[in-house]
């Protein structure tokens, strides 16, 4: 491994290392999404996020019209440990325009 804070991306986890202390997007199993500041992670993708917004998406079928009704539930959590086995993807900083 090279220098202290190498800015190059050699392996996938480097991308996440460079996102430390930045707001990231995390997609999880069971239709959950998180947006929050990445404070720590390990090779399993266990993570600690700060100022987290969780969005849960549920789809219901209307009894009469059989239309799909998509509902989203949001909640905010100050500090959250996320177990890595539920993680589907991690996307680096959502840069403000």
């Amino acid at each position: 491994m090279s220098g202290e804070e190498d800015a190059t991306v050699r392996e996938p986890l480097d991308l996440i290392r460079l996102s430390l202390d930045e707001r990231i997007y995390v997609k999880l199993r069971s239709d959950r999404e998180l947006r929050g500041k990445l404070h720590a992670f390990d090779q399993h993708l266990n993570m600690i996020l700060g100022d987290v917004e969780e969005v849960i998406t549920t789809v219901e079928i209307d009894d009469e019209t059989y239309e799909e009704i998509v509902r989203t539930t949001k909640r905010n959590i100050q500090f959250l440990f996320v177990r890595g086995d539920g993680v589907i993807l991690v996307s680096p900083p959502l840069r403000a325009p």
Binding site: E5, L13, D14, R17, L20, D21, L28, H39, A40, F41, D42, Q43, I48, G50, I77, Q78, F79, L80, F81, V82, R83, D85, G86
Partner: peptide
Amino acid sequence: GSVVRYVQLPPDGVDVDLLHDAARREA
């Protein structure tokens, strides 16, 4: 451990700078 999805942490139990250093070391 394997059935855990989240652990909601107490705000004063999170030292952000310490975590960043630990995460870089781990990486």
